[in-house]
């Protein structure tokens, strides 16, 4: 498993035309092997562009993408090989399903890798198991699946390449709470089972807080903040400046503190922590210590 490093990465859309627009400018960070990193940013902050730069789908205007220390653009012809190692799941991936059966669709990536048929079949089964797709569905047409199943089948299509770095662009967009939970658990499972690094973009602060070990905040194409969730979500001002918000649980605790509960601890950002904190306050409140 290799680390993914980005150095001074920039990208410009429509360079040299009146519609020129810098989408990513001078972004640097490192994703260590086995790390789970959340990426947040307002619409148009350059998240999706950045995600496409990492597997070499877009060529950076400046800067480098290094996988295990190798520049992926060192040899233009070989960049395709890196796409198998840095797997990117696009937003609404279910719209890319195309093959006759779910099995063949998931196997598209591994077949492109030139793997032997038995190996492709084994990888398809493993990927389907990670996303929780029952075996019997593999023989169905992908277009007969339900919305949530389609999403999982499409994600399995990238997992089957067994990338060392898995990137997901808003994997939970448009799903119900149960569907979101399934996807988040799947991210954790893939990370645990393979030791791959995972980078995922989300608009839901609560999802990032629940899964990510580290958070990158993008604002207007630049890396505005990065650090562990506790650290990033403590900087409410900076997040507001980037048109973002802290998780709902953090907001509730902050509101409680303003309402006259100075003992409320800050820097808590998951549901479990918030519940524990309110229970603690409640217990202490009964004793008459703080309110």
């Amino acid at each position: 498993m290799a680390e993914l490093r980005v150095e001074g990465l920039s990208f410009v859309y429509g360079a040299g035309t009146p519609y020129e627009k810098t989408a990513v400018s001078d972004v640097s960070f490192t994703i260590a092997a086995g790390e789970i990193v959340g990426v947040i940013g307002h619409t148009g902050s350059g998240k999706s562009t950045l995600m496409q730069l990492l597997p070499g789908l877009l060529r950076p205007a400046a800067g480098r993408v290094l996988l295990g220390g190798e520049d992926i653009w060192a040899n233009e012809k070989a960049v395709r090989q890196y796409r198998f190692r840095v797997g990117l799941v696009f937003q609404y991936p279910e719209y890319q399903l195309f093959d006759e059966t779910v099995e063949r669709d998931i196997g598209f990536g591994p077949r492109n890798m030139g793997l032997a048929l038995e190996e492709v079949a084994a990888r398809v089964r493993r990927a389907a198991a990670v996303v929780g797709l029952p075996e019997r569905l593999l023989r169905h047409s992908p277009f007969d699946l339900s919305g949530g199943e389609k999403r999982r089948a499409a994600i399995a299509g990238v997992l089957a390449m067994e990338p060392e770095v898995l990137i997901l662009d808003e994997p939970t967009a448009g799903l119900d709470p149960a569907g979101r939970q399934t996807i988040l658990e799947m991210i954790r499972a893939y990370n645990r089972q393979t030791g791959a690094a995972v980078l995922f973009v989300s608009h839901t602060m609560e999802d990032v807080a629940a899964v990510a070990e580290r958070v990158l905040v993008l604002s207007a194409g630049r890396l505005a903040l990065q650090g562990p969730p506790a650290e990033v979500f403590a900087k409410e001002e900076e997040l507001r400046a980037a048109s973002l918000d802290v998780p709902a649980y953090t907001r509730i605790l902050a509101a409680l503190r303003r309402q006259g509960f100075p003992a409320v601890r800050q820097g808590l950002y998951t549901l479990e922590e918030a519940v524990a904190e309110i229970q603690r306050l409640y217990a202490e409140g009964k004793g008459g210590a703080t309110c």
Partner: peptide
């Protein structure tokens, strides 16, 4: 463009 990029991400040549 989006679909092309997505299939390229899966190694489509």
């Amino acid at each position: 463009e989006k679909i092309t990029a997505a299939q390229k991400a899966r190694g489509a040549d």
